[in-house]
């Protein structure tokens, strides 16, 4: 296991306990509070599914909206699944595709533009489905 003390002075280090543990504990409490607030605040359409009314009264969760919109745009089943698989493969293999030695994304203009374009595309697709 890695030893962070190697090659560092005492000033560059801080104790894992309690500093990091406290950070995680505090944020865990924030998360639990947010979940409980969402339980109270978020509306829920809990009606039995039938073709008569359910389809136009509920919307899918926000994180699936872009997938649904893409499925709507690409009519061919094969094309849609191929697009998803290709996108997933590219996403998974980012470390092997990015050969630029610089670390920060803002220092790589081409890659930066591609990432921003992809993010905007996902948001745009989701918004298109949401506003439908």
């Amino acid at each position: 296991m890695v030893d962070y003390r190697k090659g560092r002075s005492e000033e560059d280090l801080e104790p894992f306990f309690p500093n990091e543990i406290l950070r995680h504990t505090l944020l865990t409490f924030f998360l639990m509070s947010a979940v409980l607030i969402a339980v109270i605040v978020l509306p829920e359409s809990f009606q039995k599914s039938t073709g008569e009314f359910a389809a136009f009264q509920t919307k899918p969760p926000w994180y699936l909206l872009s997938f649904y919109q893409l499925s709507f745009l690409l009519k061919s089943k094969v094309l849609y699944i191929t697009a998803l698989v290709v996108f997933a493969l590219l996403f998974v293999s980012i470390p092997f595709l990015d050969r630029n030695p610089k670390r920060c994304l803002c220092e790589k203009p081409v890659f930066f533009s591609l990432v921003i374009l992809c993010l905007l595309m996902v948001i745009f697709l989701g918004l298109m489905r949401f506003l439908k």
Partner: peptide, 17 residues
């Protein structure tokens, strides 16, 4: 529920997601 129907009717019927 309604959401389940939405999922399968929209994505499912169009492309089989």
């Amino acid at each position: 529920n309604g959401l389940s129907y939405w999922g399968v009717s929209t994505a499912g019927s169009e492309v089989g997601m």
